[in-house]
Design a protein around this nucleic acid. Structure first.
Lengths: 300, 300
DNA sequence: CAGGGTGTTGCTGAAAACGCACCACCTGGA
DNA sequence: TCCAGGTGGTGCGTTTTCAGCAACACCCTG
């Protein structure tokens, strides 16, 4: 949208923390961007950013204005979507946050299904950790997010909940591979790839603690980034899957369910910003996901 | 605000119902305004106004966009106000809708009091009839409104309620003038100035019906517009006052309370758009009014 | 004491917006 | 029937705004 380009520029500056970096991202000259900012600040009669030698930082007034800017951009996006929808063209865009420790096979299937019905709807998926969830939602960076046991924030709301299983992920030639299921105890002697602090990590820590075992991760990172280590060594990673997922998403690896009595079953939440009215495409896709969540919950 | 001038232009076109009239109001050439509109329509890829030979009319897409535009302008206003407030400068603007059949002496006093404390806050008062209340609030034309017994709309919310009295207004030389109070029956033989359909009218109609009397207005209009008739003839008008008001607001006229048992006491409501966050100035002024309402209600 | 990072500013040319005059069209009334 | 007054739309010359370039002053880091 041309008529609110300034708002997007401000948003970019705030995200980049520097006029020059924001200018590069927005394909514009730093001087031009700077002048827009100065003009806006004069118009509002308040400094939106503190100037520091290393870049800029939002001032209190800037925080307020940035909130306004993001609301307006999101609202415009929604209006556009509604108008497109009214014209019969089922176009639109859905941006989604997805827990990095959650297998997305079933989710990808849902997207595929939806895109088959509405080919002109585009998707954007960001793999996020639990802490980023709240930030990205309140920043209007993603429309909604799928996370494991999110913390309860007052400005977020849960649309649907489904139970998940924690599974062990390992190389196909691993000595444990091929077993129908393993106990959590069996896994402990192997080198472990643990997710950073978050819901899944908590679950594993609690289970280990119950066995009086101190977890010593060989590698600490989200599973998708651990591909090399997983495949080269004898390491074991962990992932949360819905009952419909059977794969880890990593080539050459296999997935084995962990005995349920050892590990509590986490819940997966579909969350969005409370009170936000989503675009037509996003809200319809959300409806589908809610159905799917209910279906998963029903199977258990 | 320069950066959302286009939105204000669109709003002006919608209100004026014609590009030329809107252009005049906005101090711009019709051609320039027309071009802005065309450019915006192309950007959105939808026609916002239907072109008719007598002017323009909002299309469905235009309704959507206009809502967005008004929200955005109002939100910007609020942000500005908050920033001003943060800087310690107690500036701001309050736009108020006020029932045309309601005496505003006490209200004007409240404004004066507030402006004494915050001289840089400006006020704008629109006298509105009951039907316009909902429209003006949802259009973001006024921040809040003071009306007699408003209809309950789902998107409006009442901040405070206070009881009022219905009084008779007449020329100072009128034969009834000087009496401490009159009964509704005593008024009926005189030529009556009745407000258009609305809460006050309803009240009078009901009272008349109870006496098996059919009201025949000599003049039907809001009291402030009936000045000439009121002063020249023997006519009697009606107004609703809070217990703190003693005047009609019209020079050379006097106010006489009507016996309470004849006429139900109407309530005055302070209403605003549900869910809307007002500017700092407006919300502080609203707080004061709520106090004042409570005070009035307490006295009775 | 360089070197690379930051925000800022004169200057210039291009692009966008504007105002004017004019067109085509419809409506209402003499 | 025709004309006056209203509407939205458009070509064109002018004005204003804006972007890009280059350079400056500043600060931190190595």
């Amino acid at each position: 949208m041309r008529h609110q380009i300034t708002l997007k520029f401000i948003d970019a500056i705030a995200r980049a923390g520097s006029i020059r970096r924001a200018a590069e991202k927005m394909a514009i000259t730093p001087s031009a961007l700077n002048r827009r900012l100065l003009a806006l600040e004069e118009e509002i009669d308040a400094q939106l950013f503190e100037r520091m030698t290393t870049g800029v930082r939002l001032s209190a007034a800037g925080e307020l204005f940035l909130g306004h800017a993001r609301r307006q951009v999101a609202d415009m996006e929604r209006i556009r979507s509604q108008i497109e929808d009214m014209k019969g063209a089922r176009r639109g865009h859905v941006s989604f946050g997805f827990d990095a420790n959650l297998a997305m096979e079933s989710f990808a299937e849902a997207i595929g299904e939806y895109r088959e019905a509405h080919p002109d709807v585009t998707f954007q998926i960001e793999r996020i950790d639990r802490d980023a969830t709240q930030r990205h939602l309140t920043d209007y960076r993603v429309d909604m997010a799928c996370v494991i046991q999110p913390e309860a924030y007052p400005n977020l709301t849960t649309l649907a909940v489904a139970p998940a299983n924690v599974v062990a992920v390992m190389e196909q030639s691993h000595e444990l591979a091929g077993q129908p299921s393993v106990s959590f105890n069996d896994l402990l002697p192997h080198p472990l790839i643990l997710p950073p602090s978050g819901s899944l990590r908590n679950l594993l820590e609690v289970a280990a603690h119950r066995q009086d075992y101190m977890l010593r991760p060989a590698l600490e990172c989200e599973l998708p980034f651990a591909g090399h280590v997983l495949k080269s060594g004898k390491a074991i990673g962990f992932s949360a899957n819905t009952s419909m997922d059977n794969e880890s998403g990593l080539e050459g690896t296999t997935v084995i369910p962990i005995n349920q009595r050892d590990l509590a079953k986490p819940n997966i939440h579909l969350v969005q910003l409370r009170g936000r009215t989503l675009s037509v495409a996003a809200s319809r896709f959300a409806d589908r996901l809610v159905q799917r969540f209910a279906q998963i919950a029903g199977e258990v």
